[in-house]
């Protein structure tokens, strides 16, 4: 499923973004050998500090399996700067209704082959559908995307062939890079949906995305307030219950403010455990 993360909601999705930056490090640093900066296992560049939009794919278990980043072509973006070789020194296209998409990546290690849910092909198509539909809803009619030839073939194979290319294919690390043009028209999205067998709405609400992602984290972590041998105090149990019964982001935020307000009555480790635990069971059904 797809979530859209931008400057307005990213404070809720720090964990998702960290996982995405790690995926990018594996794909663009290790696999493609691009000249990218990796720190603490995360690939982050200067464009990530310009409040871009990330369209992120989660698998059924809540792990980040695909992601892409979008920037406006009216402002600073990669083709105007680090990818200017692709345009052979020519000025880039600049349009209010065109976004640039970069860092399209899919976790080929975690995902299976074939076309089923949780396969590479499914996650790729879902991300393409999500990013095209999100752009269209924002009034964007075209996307210029910087990709490698493998991704270009994947686009063609998924009935999502670019309608044209700009500039040239130039060497970039272990593989070349090129810039392709895609429209965000309904026809194109329908073709990808048919190819992948995805008729449903691919977007998760912030609430549902948070619940899904938290569930994945919770599996790796014991339940809050029962984490160590010390029995939970009534207050801790109450707070844990409140977290588990929260059904919206607002409710969850309210519990977090309560935990902050009660910091004096909680051991620091217990407090952190509570804050790290989102609703783990509330949405199991």
């Amino acid at each position: 499923m797809i979530i859209v993360i931008d400057a307005l909601n990213k404070h809720l999705f720090d964990g998702v973004l960290d996982e995405m930056f790690r995926l990018r490090a594996r794909v663009f640093g290790d696999r493609l050998g691009w000249d990218v900066t990796i720190e603490d296992g995360k690939e982050i560049d200067k464009f990530d500090h310009l409040d871009p939009v990330y369209v992120v794919g989660l698998d059924d278990e809540g792990s980040v399996v695909a992601a892409v980043r979008a920037l406006q072509t009216t402002g600073p973006h990669m083709l105007a700067d680090v990818f200017s070789d692709i345009l052979c020194g020519e000025p880039p296209l600049r349009s209010s209704t065109m976004w640039e998409s970069t860092r399209f990546c899919v976790d080929t290690q975690r995902l299976k082959r074939g076309k089923d849910r949780n396969s590479v092909s499914y996650a790729t198509c879902e991300l393409m559908i999500g990013s095209l539909e999100y752009a269209r809803r924002a009034g964007i009619s075209d996307i210029v995307t910087v990709i490698d030839p493998v991704m270009d073939r994947v686009l063609k194979r998924s009935d999502n062939a670019p309608y044209d290319y700009v500039g040239e294919t130039v060497p970039m690390g272990k593989v070349p890079a090129l810039a392709a043009l895609l429209d965000t028209g309904e026809e194109r999205v329908e073709r990808v949906r048919r190819f992948a067998g995805i008729p449903h709405d691919v977007f998760l609400s912030d609430d549902d995305a948070l619940a899904l992602f938290s569930r994945a984290r919770a599996r790796a972590k014991p339940l809050a307030a029962n984490a160590d041998d010390v029995p939970a105090t009534p207050l801790e149990r109450y707070l844990a219950e409140q977290i588990q019964s929260a059904t919206t982001v607002e409710e969850l935020k309210a519990v977090h403010s309560l935990i902050d307000a009660l910091a004096g009555s909680l051991a620091p480790s217990r407090r952190q455990n509570l804050l790290d635990t989102h609703k783990m069971v509330a949405r199991e059904a």
Binding site: S95, S96, M98, D142
Partner: peptide, 17 residues
């Protein structure tokens, strides 16, 4: 020998520039 849409996006870009 380019698609009509390519012509269109280039014109749009030129207009805005």
């Amino acid at each position: 020998s380019i698609s009509h849409r390519t012509v269109e996006v280039h014109l749009r870009s030129s207009r805005e520039k």
